[in-house]
Amino acid sequence: MSPDLFFQYLFAGITYGSIYAVVAIGFNIIYNATGIINFAQGEFVMLGGMISISLLHFMPLPLAIASAVALTMLIGAAIEILFIRWLQSPSVMRMIIITIGISILLKEVALHIWGESIRSLPYFYGNEITTFSIGSVHISPQVVWVILASAVMVAGLNLFFKSTPIGREMRACSANRTAALLCGINARNMVTLSFMLSAGIGALAGCVMSPITYTQYDSGSALALKGFTVAILGGLGNSGAAVLAGILLGIIEAFSVSVVPLAFQDAISIAILLVILFVKPHGLFGSGDAARLKDF
């Protein structure tokens, strides 16, 4: 493999990896707040892309993306209020089945609104063939957008959870729900908020990646599986590690293209998921002792 090709793969890996990381963080936010894995996480990404593509007919690109993110956040809140908020200590299997049902419903709604056609947002800067070069490596400006947006989201979330009052309240709820309630924090609203946040970052990721990966009504499922792989790889609930794990998975996937046929690319990341689940279910960076206390 020539050095040029190596860097080309590397950049592709980082691009996809940062998207996976954002999806994984979406999983983590909801998991930390509720202990639920939201199987509809990938659908938020799809909705973000689809809604922004439709809104683009009426408004300029930045406004369309902002509105799409806001709308998806509302959808996320609606889902939580309708399907999750009022359940009293539901079993894990029940929650799995409900979120899977939501994922199917969102997919079907998208299918009936947007059809089976593959859509995409235009490139934010330039077009498909615009590239800039570092040495002899060519990079599309959209790649920079994706990486930048992911980095901003990760940094923003970090800031939000560490230094805003609401962020601190959310962390308090995930650390100890009863104690948080006793301190006067409305834990239920925090859960709704976690769904909104998770939907919001998913939607934004869906917008920035749409020009490169395209958006289709069922493009969420594969992304959700990979996002989950990354979340597990980094240790469920650990968003900092998810970034590293995401980029790692992205790079593995990108380089796997040079070894196995493209059609098997998804199978590779899922195989990684299975291996990690079997061998090290607490993740590469997680603590095994802490994991033993959790219910896998």
Binding site: I96, L225, A263, A267, I270, A271, L274, L277
Partner: peptide, 28 residues
């Protein structure tokens, strides 16, 4: 043997992953 050691979400995702791999293999 390995999958059934998992519980809850992990079991769901592992079986989902298995199903997806089978699907991809037949498709490819």
């Amino acid at each position: 043997i390995p999958v059934l050691k998992l519980k809850g979400h992990y079991l769901a995702m592992a079986t989902l992953g298995f199903g997806t791999i089978v699907y991809r293999i037949f498709l490819a």
